[in-house]
Amino acid sequence: MKRPNQQRDAGPDGGFQLRFSGDELAVRAALRRIRGAVGSCVSADQLGLIELVLGEVLNNVVEHAYGPVTNGQIEVECALGEGALVFVVRDFGREMPEGQLPEGLPIDIHRLREEDLPEGGFGWFLVRALVRGLEYRREAGCNTLSFTIPIADCKRGGLRADPAQSSG
């Protein structure tokens, strides 16, 4: 069935916004909502990779921007761009160390002995490998991370704008 014209002209349609508490449980719930919203638009494999990226980014906010003592809100915006999902993630916690994103350089695993292999530090590397246009800004106590994730053709309106505002 054809979508009404006004929908087609209605800017970046089908986007969504979430706002939730910066703790592990709320992040898990938010990831479920994001899966639900994006799921009709991408393949199952790609959905897993999108969840991976958002999970790394959001868990990083919980662990490092807020940490065990402080707490605060996280905001996620998602819109459908040209062949890509456009994400903006905001938090109001601590600044990134030295005001910069961790590099997440690939580890030269061939030069490491097995016992020296890292058990962590894959997160930012995976994020950088899976997104485009990753940018970090610190302004007025707010961390803003923006990036896009290329996706195969997604019909306009394919994003379900369903996830209602969550106060988590």
Partner: peptide
Amino acid sequence: VEFIDSSGLGAIVAAMK
């Protein structure tokens, strides 16, 4: 297993070690 993240990957490396 349909989903793994960096923590899961690290845990498998730890299991090997």
